[in-house]
Simulated assay, not measured.
Amino acid sequence: MTTTTDIQNIIEKYKAGHRYFLNLDFDKGEKLAGQILADTTFDNCCFSVDFSETDFTNSKFANCNLKCCDFSNCNLTNTIFENCSLESAEFKNAKIDGTTLTNCHCYGQIVTLDKTTGELETYKDPLVKELYDNIPEFSKVADHLNDDLLYTVYGELSLKLFDDIVTNNETTDFTIKCFQFFNLLGDRNDENIDNLLVVGIYEGLYANKKCNNIARQLLTGRNKDIYEHWMKNGNIRAEY
């Protein structure tokens, strides 16, 4: 265990063989750039530090407040961030092969590191991410505050779809794209996905005859059968 009051002492301790630093507190914009701190663990530390171009290969940040830290151009290969706060942390052009974020937060939301862009993003349930990828128009208007809550996001889509159907005289590209996505999911023949579509989406449409007509027109195969079955036999009063 190593504690220190001068940030430069971290390098001195590292060169002397120390690889575990506990309870460090540097939050005044200190700079520790272009250093080698590979294979090091930082535990319960508070940093607001310019670490740019530093090598943290195989290192670990656990239970740390890393608000406003600059990890730009760092080597973060196989680096672990666990139970860390990452508000306004910067990872531009960092090497992030094998970098993992576990239970890390930004403004109260769980975040992950986009391995393509190197940017922090809120955690998304895999089926929520797939939804946004297939229907980017919805992603643009969603508030993204509940991207980890699968049924909440799909419920929001159901409201948007209902409004789109009942307020337009013609079937829009957005509505068509939604049902194409529902067919894509439903064709996987997965009971959990079927339940998501029924509870998350379809039950929000059943009360409107126009919605039901369009759904039966655009859904195909087993997806249409499932829609009609729960429209007639579910707990939601349907207008069909």
Rank of each mutant, 00 (worst) to 15 (best):
C68K: 14
C68I: 09
F71R: 11
S72C: 13
L76F: 10
L76S: 07
T79L: 09
T79C: 15
I80M: 13
N83E: 15
S85P: 03
L86A: 08
E87P: 10
E87T: 14
E87F: 14
S88D: 15
E90P: 00
K92L: 15
K92V: 10
A94V: 03
K95V: 12
I96D: 04
D97L: 11
T100V: 12
N103E: 11
N103M: 09
C104N: 01
G108I: 05
V111C: 06
T112Q: 05
L113T: 00
K115P: 13
T116M: 06
G118M: 08
E119V: 12
L120Y: 04
L120D: 04
L120A: 03
L120H: 06
E121Q: 15
T122H: 10
T122I: 10
Y123D: 03
P126Y: 10
V128H: 08
V128Q: 08
V128F: 06
D133T: 05
N134A: 13
K140T: 10
K140Q: 12
K140D: 08
D148C: 06
T152S: 07
T152D: 11
T152Q: 10
V153S: 01
G155Q: 05
L157R: 00
L159W: 08
L159T: 14
L159M: 11
K160Y: 12
F162S: 05
D163A: 13
D164R: 00
I165Q: 07
V166N: 10
T167S: 12
E170G: 02
T171L: 01
T171N: 10
T171Q: 11
T171K: 13
D173I: 14
I176V: 14
C178N: 08
C178Y: 01
F182Q: 03
F182I: 04
N183D: 06
L185C: 03
L185K: 02
D187S: 15
R188L: 15
